[in-house]
């Protein structure tokens, strides 16, 4: 019978704690928005922050409160946007986006101004006179974006990042990381892209890189739908207008389009 009293003691303590907690949770309950919980269930839970909120919970709260659009979730993509739209009873158009590096300049195309021996990261190299490349706008190739990608969608080839479109969810982590701001999010369906971000003009650009945009305006003049505009001496495509005819890529002598 000696074993009985410690068992009873333990059971009583457990019981008191249990009753206390259940009472506490009942009397101190905080009403949680039912809609918010349902929204949260639709989200993938990657907590990547691509939506601009602190995490999936933060985004769910904002969506439930009607402060955020339901198509902000990049990893969830179209299916999540649709699920959220159904839940909220609103129409939504979500086009999947992927990252794109706006620089075609491989190490063969651009010269080196000096030999860089510092820390092997784009951010560090960028601090030393904008990096060793002759083109001060172009990709530095130390792979900061490659390391930033949470989905293994970027691989380094020939010292340049290559984005695997199938794996990219368009979270934009790489775009935030790139010290040259070369990476942008473009529609997955985009057929023509601009592989240069050099905002200088003419001879200076030719000297810097062999595949650079010199702002000759040929693409802008020849685009049948008016989608290509040369802004700040570099071609920019408006994907709302672009039909993907490829005319701009045909007329470009500098092979900027890809």
């Amino acid at each position: 019978m000696e074993i009985l009293s410690p068992i009873i003691l333990l059971a009583v303590i457990g019981l008191i704690a249990g009753i206390g907690l259940s009472l506490a949770s009942k009397f101190m309950a905080v009403p949680v928005d039912e809609k918010q919980e349902k929204v949260r269930e639709c989200l993938p839970g990657a907590n990547c922050g691509a939506c601009g909120y602190s995490g999936c919970d933060g985004y769910a709260a904002a969506v439930a409160a009607g402060e955020a659009e339901p198509n902000k979730c990049a990893p969830g993509g179209a299916s999540t946007a649709k699920a959220l739209a159904d839940l909220l009873g609103v129409a939504v158009e979500a086009e999947p986006k992927v990252a794109f590096v706006g620089c075609n300049g491989t190490p063969e195309c651009t010269k080196q101004r000096f030999e860089y021996q510092g820390m092997q990261s784009c951010a560090a190299a960028n601090l030393v006179h904008g990096g060793p490349n002759a083109c001060s706008f172009g990709c530095l190739g130390f792979g900061d974006c490659f390391r930033a990608c949470p989905f293994d969608a970027i691989r380094m080839e020939n010292g340049r990042p290559v984005i695997c479109v199938d794996q990219c969810v368009g979270c934009g982590k790489c775009a935030e990381t790139c010290p040259k701001s070369l990476i942008s999010l473009i529609p997955q369906t985009a057929k023509v892209r601009v592989g240069c971000s050099n905002k200088q003009r003419g001879p200076a650009v030719v000297k810097a890189c062999s595949v650079s945009c010199i702002a000759c305006m040929q693409c802008e003049k020849n685009c049948p739908s008016g989608a290509v505009k040369v802004i700040d001496n570099v071609a920019v495509i408006d994907y709302n207008l672009c039909t993907g005819c490829g005319k701009c890529a045909e007329v470009c002598k500098r092979k900027v389009f890809c």
Binding site: L10, I13, A17, L21, A24, S25, M28, A29
Partner: peptide, 21 residues
């Protein structure tokens, strides 16, 4: 064993308390 039980209960209680107040 008693301490484990009690601490777990306390932490839960603190959480509920903080969430409410």
């Amino acid at each position: 064993i008693v301490f484990i039980l009690v601490i777990a209960a306390i932490v839960q209680f603190i959480e509920i308390f903080l969430k409410r107040f």
